[in-house]
């Protein structure tokens, strides 16, 4: 009866690609924010740097991260394809812009998505690229396992070969790239903080429509569960998560 090319070349199939990549990216936001909450720990970044190391070196996570990068690219490229297709469907616009009761964000996902894409590029070059290939500071933590007290010391590139964490004489020693410091440094610049807050605003509007829209696209629009989906979309994805993320630059800018 059918083959998969029909499935994906159709308008519904293209929309499905948008929906699945979008949902995957949304789920990543939860993981990412949970991890980033380590930044709020008052431990000079020990937990956060451990987490950063784990995320960049654990193989399954690495696989997922490549999925993530491709999702971002596919989500963006497909957005452009469908937008062009949709524009073609109405070559001659209306003299008076239609009033149709739809919410603003649903009509402006493209603009919001573009802002987000720029945000992601800046964000990744600031941190992800820097962490992997840029010049990062290094740090050594020495924790006395008996007292629990930790001494933090900046170390030089010459003293650092790779991430290590071991126990020596009742003292846990961790040497790591210091992404925490990097973060702290970056968010001293007001314009970057402003850019991040703006980005999270765009995320909020993108998701208030996008999250519930994905369920509609999947065909999961059931009158019993629709309110739940809308609730999660609104409170979790378009309020809690963007606020959580936006709190980080503000926290560093104002308090650190």
């Amino acid at each position: 009866m059918s083959n998969f090319s029909n499935a994906f070349s159709s308008t519904l199939g293209k929309k499905l690609v948008m929906c699945l990549t979008g949902l995957f990216l949304s789920s990543f936001l939860i993981v990412h924010l949970t991890g980033n909450l380590q930044l709020f720990k008052n431990d000079n970044g020990l937990a956060f740097n451990q987490y950063a190391h784990f995320m960049t070196n654990f193989t399954p996570i690495k696989v997922v991260s490549y999925l993530l990068y491709s999702s971002i690219i596919i989500h963006s490229v497909w957005a452009i394809i469908t937008t062009l297709h949709n524009r073609k469907a109405r070559p001659h616009g209306y003299a008076i812009k239609p009033k149709d009761g739809s919410i603003w964000s649903s009509r402006n996902m493209g603009i919001l998505g573009t802002i987000l894409f720029v945000f992601i590029v800046v964000h990744m070059s600031n941190f992800w690229y820097q962490y992997h290939w840029g010049e990062t500071p290094f740090v050594e933590y020495r924790t006395d396992l008996n007292t629990g007290a930790t001494i933090t010391k900046e170390i030089q590139a010459s003293e650092f070969t790779e991430y290590v964490s071991y126990i020596d004489n009742g003292i846990e020693i961790t040497k790591s790239k210091d992404l925490y410091k990097e973060t702290q440094f970056a968010f001293q610049q007001w314009w970057l903080v402003a850019f991040y807050v703006l980005g999270m605003g765009a995320l909020s509007f993108h998701l208030v429509h996008g999250f519930q829209s994905a369920f509609q696209t999947l065909g999961w629009n059931h009158h019993k569960y629709r309110p739940l989906v809308k609730f999660i979309g609104l409170w979790v994805f378009s309020i809690l998560i963007p606020i959580g993320f936006a709190a980080i630059p503000l926290y560093f800018f104002l308090l650190k």
């Binding site: 469908t82 949709n86 469907a89 149709d100 919410i103 009509r107 509609q216």
Partner: peptide, 21 residues
Amino acid sequence: VLQMDEEGFGGCTNTYACEAK
């Protein structure tokens, strides 16, 4: 659905303007 696509209609972006009108 395939005939709909062939006719040159656009895709759905779930703005729900259709339902409203």
